[in-house]
């Protein structure tokens, strides 16, 4: 579904992605973690070409992103993206946010698009918010609307870039629950997150990145119980210690 082969990317001098080789199979849920600044956002943003790559090859849903002739807008319509800061359209209502792309890009009739949007809103538990504006919603609600907005295009792939990092702790659960339900539907998911509980329960595979390099790639139980790399062990220690202190 997604294949990175020898992918490199630079921001000027900064080597943000260094020889990335990664294959995501259809229906797989892949969690990407690693310290801040390690290139996780850049990695996930190359998948829908929000960031173009400089070297190597990246094939997404059969489309070679280094091929200038592909219709990038068509690919992006097949790939949902959920941002850390939600990025809902503030001038549109919840239903307007969800139906805009289906109506304007897929030419779905308005009524049909709204029916479909209501199904999605019900799924994320926000049916009663259809006419609210983003500024009237909590962070957790906004993020759930953002997920519904992404799903409205019936994507084959959903990308999440730290979807719960901007949320108050009490709202993280509701968003993770929606993502967990989504994972069961068989959609391909790439999730950048530090929510290790989610990774353990939902992920098929965990990728650990540091300094633009994939250091480790393992099944969740292996990654958490037998991290191979010193950097991973360090990362997990740092992540788990304050969290356990907070939870207990």
């Amino acid at each position: 579904m997604i294949t990175f082969s020898g992918v490199h990317k630079w921001f000027k001098q900064l080597h943000v992605l260094n020889d990335i080789n990664l294959h995501v199979t259809p229906g797989e849920v892949l969690v990407v973690c690693g310290p801040s600044g390690s290139g996780k956002s850049t990695l996930i943003r190359t998948i829908n070409q929000l960031e173009p790559i400089n070297q190597g090859s990246l094939v997404v849903d059969g489309m070679d992103l280094s091929d200038k002739k592909i219709d990038i807008n068509k690919l992006r319509a097949e790939v949902g993206f959920v941002f850390q800061q939600f990025n809902l359209y503030p001038h549109l209502s919840v239903i307007g946010n969800i139906t805009l792309a289906p109506i304007k890009i897929r030419n779905t009739p308005k009524k049909e698009a709204e029916e479909q949007a209501m199904q999605l809103l019900t799924r994320v538990g926000l049916a009663e918010k259809r006419d609210a504006y983003p500024s009237q919603l909590s962070g957790g609600q906004q993020q759930r609307v953002a997920i519904a907005r992404g799903l409205a295009m019936r994507p084959k792939i959903m990308l999440f870039d730290e979807p719960t990092s901007a949320l108050d702790p009490e709202m993280i659960g509701e968003v993770l629950q929606v993502m967990q339900d989504l994972a069961k539907t068989g959609i391909t998911m790439v999730v950048v997150t530090h929510e290790m509980g989610f990774a353990r329960e939902v992920a098929d595979r965990v990728v650990f990145m540091a300094d633009g390099v994939i250091l480790e790639e393992a099944a969740p139980e292996d990654f958490f119980l037998r991290p191979q790399h010193e950097r991973s062990r360090q990362f997990l220690r740092q992540l788990l210690t304050p969290m356990q202190a907070e939870c207990s």
Binding site: A77, E78, V79, F83, N87, H91, L100, K104
Partner: peptide, 27 residues
């Protein structure tokens, strides 16, 4: 980020301007 959100939804640059950016900018 507004442009990023609309581009990743599959809108072209001009369509993003039309539906997402200009309505907010004009306001």
């Amino acid at each position: 980020e507004q442009m990023e959100a609309s581009r990743s939804a599959g809108f072209s640059y001009l369509r993003s301007m039309q539906y997402i950016i200009l309505p907010q900018a004009v306001r």
